[in-house]
Design a protein around this nucleic acid. Structure first.
Lengths: 215, 215
DNA sequence: AGCATAAGCGGACTTTACCCCGCTTATATT
DNA sequence: AATATAAGCGGGGTAAAGTCCGCTTATGCT
């Protein structure tokens, strides 16, 4: 592996992280991706990963804290592109468009993301960690922001924005986070998810109704 | 050779169940309730439960299949009352009332139920089992039925009832199923859930908007 | 370069869900 | 009442997550 940072400033990582630790993290992530590609998510065990990476089990846990942590790191990585599109890309996903349109566009993009990564996303769920602050954190933040904006523009008057934010986030992510186990692939086993567009279309319908001007 | 068909015997236990097995099941449930009351859900282990009940570990698994199964049985039991109110009780929860009002009433009742039982409900989640067919099955069925009725009465035209059913179910149950780990008690750790009525009020708001007559 | 030290590392150990399978017993039939 | 048999039972066995702690090593300082 070649050096990525010719400049001397060690600013990319949290100050304390050693070079070997960073290298090991990358390596573990790489090996994890391989194992997932070969045998699927549920075949990735901490011992197996450690052995195949030529490292000790303790190291794996030190780096990722928990099994879910590995997948969370993977998801985090994959999410980056969407995150950047939302924060700085062109409308309607990025800033500048009408907030309702942005919400629709975001939902559709997020649904596509979840559909593409559902196995890893589900595996990243940590039983003792709030999902809305973890995996769904981006959705919660963004949806909340857009609702706030809609209200500020006087286009609708919501009873409780915080509660509605959570409910909409759940409506968006819930179908993927709650529907199936990590094992089975979603589309095959559930007719409700077969039709690609329907969940996205339904999200659009939902958002348009919820954000319609109060009669 | 006569094979006993375990399919449809509408009441009681699956026909083949022996008396001692039934007795053991009840006893295990009882002991589980005690252990939960004393030390909380996560302290209930299969070995601990078996030992305290004076039974073998294998028996516990035979009865409930999985750890989650125990809690699922407990939830199922607790759910019965709500289920009966919904199917045969007085309006607006029971049949006869306007479907939108019924949906609002159902959501409020379900929220109260989930709030009261969130620890056990969360523990009843099985990683490899569709939530919408398990814990949230009642909600999925009922919400779907009401949406269907609303559409049939020509009061609103939904893009995709199946998808919307899942999304609304997720909006209703998601906050409880996804928010916190089984350990922490929800209200204390999350300001969003502190205000008792707000989630219910927000549900009402959501339902009224979604089911509003199309302009 | 040499040193001090905090970060990293490894792998044995513990805990717990879940499996297996030979033995026991309730129950229906005669 | 005796019997056949399917259901139930028990508990030892396995696998995998997560913990611990003594050893190793990168790194910053002098």
């Amino acid at each position: 592996m070649r050096r990525v940072e010719p400049s001397v400033l060690p600013f990319g990582r949290p100050r304390g992280e050693r070079a070997d630790a960073a290298r090991n993290r990358e390596h573990l992530l790489l090996v994890a991706r391989e194992m997932i590609a070969e045998d699927g998510v549920e075949k990735v065990t901490m011992d197996g990963l450690a052995e195949r990476a030529g490292l000790g089990k303790g190291t794996v846990f030190r780096r990722f804290g928990t099994r879910a942590g590995i997948f969370a790191a993977l998801v985090d990585d994959a999410e980056r592109a969407l995150q950047e599109s939302v924060m700085g890309g062109p409308p309607p996903l990025g800033p500048g468009a009408d907030p309702v349109r942005r919400m629709i566009a975001y939902g559709r993009a997020r649904i596509a993301f979840l559909r593409d990564h559902h196995a890893v996303v589900r595996a990243s769920l940590d039983r003792n960690r709030p999902v809305f602050a973890g995996v769904a954190g981006m959705s919660t933040l963004h949806i909340g922001m857009l609702l706030e904006q809609i209200r500020r523009e006087g286009r609708a008057d919501f009873t409780d924005i915080a509660a509605l934010t959570i409910q909409l986030t759940a409506a968006l992510e819930g179908p993927f986070l709650l529907y199936l186990g990590a094992t089975a692939s979603m589309p095959e086993h559930s007719p409700d998810f077969e039709s690609g567009p329907s969940l996205g279309d339904s999200w659009q319908d939902l958002v348009e109704r919820v954000c319609a001007p109060t009669a």
